[in-house]
């Protein structure tokens, strides 16, 4: 009986989440012209990296140990992860909510607060996610990959993304309590994206450490791509998933602690 209820709840939460996305999208497209322009502009973001990498590989041999398509896949995954981060964890929206005390409203609704917080991101990022997926598909079509590594690739990305989003939510709250604004988190997100567009190994041991253990974006970008191109050993996949689960649990605890001490703007 219990697992059935739990399943029912999960489906209900998904349904509610999609519902909120639908209306958020509807609101954004109330003004079709400016919304369309913004969608196009944001879709171009991942293409910039695409152009950059193409030019590099046309004027040089590129990055050692990485073919053109391999690097394309990495950049596609990186921009996909950043798009998803903006889509689910937009710091600007979260901070605005906390500033104006608007978080209260979401806490009075009959479902978990995470759902509300995750559904408030930037709808526009869906368009850059699509371009990223196109780049990923293009790169995969031109690579030779085996079945198991491919499965591990997708699973690792899913877990890594969840861990990264959890990390970002906590980071946003910490930086908000320090600086009372979202600007630091927003800028840092883009910096993380830039760094993870290229293989972490080029940043040395320090860099690899920072972007896999400190800022868990590597779990969703570098390592899954290394896995699918079999650049790592079998152990890595399990380490990634285990570490991601540990992080998600940790950040969830931190998040709930913050929620308990939550005081909104209006006393």
């Amino acid at each position: 009986m219990e697992p059935l209820n739990a399943l029912k709840r999960i489906f209900r939460n998904i349904r509610v989440f999609l519902l909120m996305q639908w209306y958020a999208a509807k609101e954004v497209f109330a003004y079709r012209v400016s919304a369309s322009f913004t969608m196009v502009a944001i879709a171009l973001g991942p293409l910039m990296n695409f152009v950059f990498i193409t030019v590099i590989y046309s004027v040089s041999s590129g990055i050692g140990g990485w073919s053109y398509y391999q690097l394309l896949l990495l950049s596609g995954v990186a921009s996909f992860i950043i798009s998803m981060a903006w889509y689910f964890a937009s710091p600007w929206t979260l901070v605005n909510l906390m500033k104006q005390g608007g978080l209260d409203i979401y806490l009075t609704r009959p479902y978990p607060p995470y759902l509300s917080i995750l559904s408030l991101g930037s709808i526009y990022s869906a368009s850059s996610a699509f371009t990223s997926i196109a780049i990923i598909a293009y790169a995969l079509a031109n690579s030779s990959i085996s079945f198991m590594p491919a499965i591990e690739f997708f699973v690792a990305i899913a877990f890594g993304l969840a861990a990264f989003i959890a990390f970002l939510l906590v980071l946003t709250m910490i930086l908000y309590s320090l600086f009372k604004s979202a600007r630091w988190t927003q800028n840092l997100m883009n910096v993380f994206g830039e760094f993870s567009t290229y293989p972490l190994t080029i940043y040395g041991v320090m860099g690899t450490f920072i972007f896999s253990l400190l800022v868990p974006i590597g779990l969703a970008t570098y390592y899954p791509v290394a896995i699918i191109y079999e650049k790592t050993d079998a152990f890595t996949f399990f380490a990634i998933v285990a570490f991601a689960i540990a992080l998600i649990t940790l950040f969830r605890v931190l998040f709930e602690r913050y929620l308990k001490n939550y005081t909104s703007a209006i006393g």
Binding site: Y23, E27, V28, A30, Y31, Q100, G101, D104, I105, I266
Partner: peptide, 11 residues
């Protein structure tokens, strides 16, 4: 809540 509306602004 008087200070916070639940209405979608553009719709």
């Amino acid at each position: 809540f008087g200070a916070h509306e639940q209405l979608y602004w553009n719709l």
